[in-house]
């Protein structure tokens, strides 16, 4: 369980998960009032984000099933992911409500 650095790959998915949402949402013109909104490009970002989120949870399970990491490491990795996504979601909800005047 210790000195085994495979679960650190999960962190990469946590970093990459909100990225397509932001990039594609900006490109689709959701923030800009003047340009017309293109839903297909934003949907591609949502799709990639959902894929990354589930990848972050599936990667420890697959690693544990393959015997690379132990089951407690898998549980801790998944709970860490839940904590991170809970933080991101609550943060964005809290601050988007403040901006909404």
């Amino acid at each position: 369980m210790f000195s085994n650095w495979w679960p650190l790959f999960v962190v990469a998915t946590y970093v990459l998960a909100p990225l397509p949402n932001a990039v594609f949402g900006r490109y689709a013109g959701r923030d800009d009032v003047m340009s017309d909104y293109q839903g297909g490009i934003a949907d591609a970002g949502y799709f990639l984000t959902g894929l990354m989120i589930i990848t972050g949870f599936c990667l420890p399970v697959v690693l544990a099933h393959a015997g690379v990491i132990t089951v407690p490491a898998m549980i801790m990795s998944i709970s860490g992911g839940l904590l991170i996504y809970g933080t991101i979601i609550s943060y964005s909800r809290f601050f988007s409500e403040e901006e909404d005047f």
Partner: peptide, 10 residues
């Protein structure tokens, strides 16, 4: 759309 991407990953 999110759930669709998640199912694809699963």
């Amino acid at each position: 759309v999110y759930v669709s991407g998640g199912l694809f990953a699963v």
